[in-house]
Write a protein that binds this DNA or RNA. Structure first.
Lengths: 167, 167
DNA sequence: TATTGTTATACTCTATAACTATA
DNA sequence: TATAGTTATAGAGTATAACAATA
C-alpha cells in the first residue's frame, strides 16, 4: 500500500486548491492596482516595500532575492529597472566587498507612499472583507508556521529527496 | 481621519505577508517537481488537472481560463502547446459553435497519473507537514469564503472602485 | 574553493488590440 | 450587438551557464 503520510485527503485538497486560487486572484487584483496607481509590478513593489521597511532603506541583493523568493539573475534585472527609474541606488556593500547594497531613494519612498493606500484597500477588500479579526488571527497563526517550515527547507538547495528510504 | 474600513492592522498584515510567501514558496516547489517528473509547468498542469477531473475530460476555453485565473489569449497559447504535445485535443463545442471544447487525451491522463504522486508529496511535505488535520480543515474553512468572495467580484470587469463615496 | 552578483543568449510568456465567426 | 476564441506583433521576463571579483 502507498505511504499514507503523503496522501492528500479531500479536506487538504480543498485547502490547497483554495489557497492557489486565492493567491492567484489576490495577485491579479494587486497587480492591477499597482499598475494603475504607480506603474509598478508586484515584484518591484515587493522590493521597494522591503527596502522601505528598514531604517537604512538598504538590503543586500541576496537577502532581497531570498525575501521575495526570486532568482538572483532575475533580481538583478528587476533592480536594474528600479535603478533606471531612480527608485533605488546600488553601491558596494561596506562590510563585504562582494555584496551590493540596494538602497531606496526618496522617489522610491514617495512612490510607495503613493501606492500604499490603494494597496491596503485592495488587500482589505479582497482578502479580509469576508474574514473577522479573529479569522485573520487564525489565518496568520496557520500560515506563519507553514512559511517557517517552507523556509527551513529551502527549495533551491536540498535536492528533491523523492522516494524516501522505506523505513 | 482615514477611513478605518480599509486600514490593514498588524495581524492582517502578517496574514497577508505569510499568504504571499507561502504561495510563492509552494509554487516554486511545485514547479520544480512538475518539471522534473513530467516536463510540465504549473499552468499546464492545472489545465490538465481540471480536464482530468471531469467525466468527459472536456472543458470550454472560457471555463478553463476562468478556473485557473488566466487570460484568454494566454490560455490559447498554453492549450496550443498542450495540443502540440498530444496531451489535449480541440474541437468545436457541440452546443455552441463559437466555443471550443478542449479534451484531455489518453497521453494527457497518463502524464497526470505520472506526476500526481510526486505532486501530492510536495504539497503534503511543504504545505501540510506543519498542519494537523483540524488545521487543514480550519484553513479550508477560512480560504473558501475568501475565494468565493473574490470570485463574486471578478477582477476583470467591475472597474476598480477606489475612493468609495463617503457614507 | 565558495560566494556575490552580473552578464549574455536564447527562449518563454504576456499584453494589447484587431479580427473571425457564431449567438 | 455581444460573446468565444484566435492571431499578430512587440515587448517583458526567465533560465542557464559562464564570468569577474572578493572571501
Amino acid at each position: 500500500m502507498p505511504d499514507p503520510s503523503h496522501a492528500v485527503d479531500p479536506v487538504q485538497l480543498g485547502a490547497y486548491f483554495a489557497l492557489v486560487e486565492v493567491s492567484a486572484l489576490l495577485q491579479h487584483g494587486i497587480e492591477q492596482q499597482l499598475r494603475e496607481d504607480g506603474d509598478l509590478t508586484f515584484v518591484r513593489f515587493q522590493v521597494l516595500m522591503r527596502l522601505d521597511q528598514t531604517a537604512t532603506g538598504s538590503h543586500r541583493m541576496t537577502d532581497l532575492a531570498d525575501a521575495i523568493v526570486y532568482s538572483r539573475s532575475g533580481l538583478t534585472y528587476q533592480v536594474g529597472l528600479l535603478e533606471k527609474a531612480g527608485l533605488v541606488t546600488r553601491a558596494p556593500s561596506p562590510d563585504d566587498e562582494r555584496g551590493v547594497a540596494v538602497t531606496i531613494t526618496d522617489a522610491g519612498r514617495a512612490l510607495i507612499a503613493r501606492v500604499l493606500p490603494g494597496h491596503e484597500e485592495v488587500v482589505s477588500d479582497l482578502l479580509f472583507e469576508p474574514l473577522s479579526r479573529d479569522d485573520a488571527r487564525t489565518l496568520a497563526g496557520l500560515l506563519t508556521p507553514v512559511r517557517d517550515h517552507m523556509r527551513a527547507a529551502p527549495p533551491r538547495s536540498a535536492a528533491p529527496r523523492r522516494r524516501s528510504p522505506r523505513s
